[in-house]
Amino acid sequence: MELRICHLYPDVLNLYGDRGNVMCLQHRLRWRGMEATVTGVSVGQPLKADDFDLFFIGGGQDFEQEVLLEDLAGGKADEIRAAVEDGKTFLAICGGYQMLGSYYKTWDGQQCDFIGALDLYTEGEQERLIGNFMFSCPELNGLNVVGFENHSGRTYLGSGVKPLGTILYGGGNNGRDKTEGARYRNVFATYSHGCLLPKNPELADLILKNALERRYGTVSLESLDDVLERNAHDSMERRLKQA
């Protein structure tokens, strides 16, 4: 079995160590004897969604945002919307998460239209939500996800989208409704850096299973030696619970 992973804008959306998620997905496939190819698709390169099983979109700096929006408007946005509806698996983080929504409105009222693949929108506020955080995730049988958030945008989910989890410590989507991230078809979206997947291996495997099953039908993943993963996860979980 193999997965073809597409890393969108790896040279631009590469803040906060998000590329570690791609490394994690790739390693966890290989450790199970499966193949994983990673292809970067950046500004000016055409995106053919049919060529891939799993898409990763990270967060970036504001400076390059115009470059991206122009590039997305040149065809990639349509491909991404179609791929989402087609049930392709996506992991989108922070800026990438916001970009899948309808728009971003800055705190001084300027609106920037995004891809519109997910029924959600983001509004900027001057105060950033920054810090280690934790949320429970119903799809992970009671396991909590730990990570680090750093965003000024407040994201609000529409009726067609579910949250990825419920905030236990930290701000999450908007600091108000206790939701964190978004789930829609096979899209996983979250504010969590950290890096997210390495120390939340169950979430990594859930995403992999999702992508593998879309391509191969029912798949069961053999368990791996996750001692170091668990240590990194548990030390942060303990620390947040003691805080």
């Binding site: 906060y16 160590g17 570690g20 490394m23 280690n132 680090f148 890096c195």
Partner: peptide, 9 residues
């Protein structure tokens, strides 16, 4: 820096 994500970069 309170965010250790950078080690992945």
């Amino acid at each position: 820096g309170t965010d250790v994500s950078w080690i992945w970069d």
